[in-house]
Amino acid sequence: MRHVIFRLDKERYALPLSAIREVVVPPGQFTRVPRSPPSVRGVINLRGRVVTVVELRSLLGLPEPSPASQKIVLLDRGRRDLGLLVTEVDGIESIEKVAPAPGKPAASVRGVARLKGLAVTVLDPDGVDGAVAACFAR
C-alpha cells in the first residue's frame, strides 16, 4: 500500500496515502483553541474551512514538541477537519510488511516497517483520530 512518509525531527513516520487529503504549509499564526489539550496547536482557516491542527509529536507522547515543525498533513477522514503538524514530508513510498512496534502498544501506531534499510513507524489514521478525540475528552 502506498504511504506518505514524513519526519518528526529525524524519526520517520508513515500514513496511508488514502488517509491523507493534502499537505499544506502552516500559516503565520494559529487561532488558539481555548481549554484545549497541550498537543492542540490551534485552528487555521483553510480555504474557508476551520481545520484543527495537532502537534503529532505531542500526540504520540514524544518529548518536547519540535519548534521546527513546518508542514501540516491533513487527514482525509470525510467528516473531520484535522491536520497533523510534522517536521517535513519526504514523499510517497510503498509499504507492505509492517512488524509490531517496539515499546508499549498505542492505538495510533500500527507497527514499524523497513524502508530502504531504515525504520519507519507506520501510523493508523483511525487511531490518530481517536487519540485526538481522547485528548480533548479528558
Binding site: T31, V33, P34, R80
Partner: peptide, 29 residues
C-alpha cells in the same frame, strides 16, 4: 456562524466558530 467540527465540538464553552473578514478564525463563546 460555523458549526464546530470534530474535535472542536468536544471543547466545553464554545458555541461555534467564524472566520472574520481578515481571514482569521474566531471562536464564539
Amino acid at each position: 456562524l460555523k458549526a464546530l467540527s470534530r474535535p472542536l465540538d468536544l471543547v466545553p464553552g464554545l458555541s461555534g466558530v467564524t472566520i472574520l473578514g481578515t481571514g482569521r478564525p474566531v471562536f464564539i463563546l
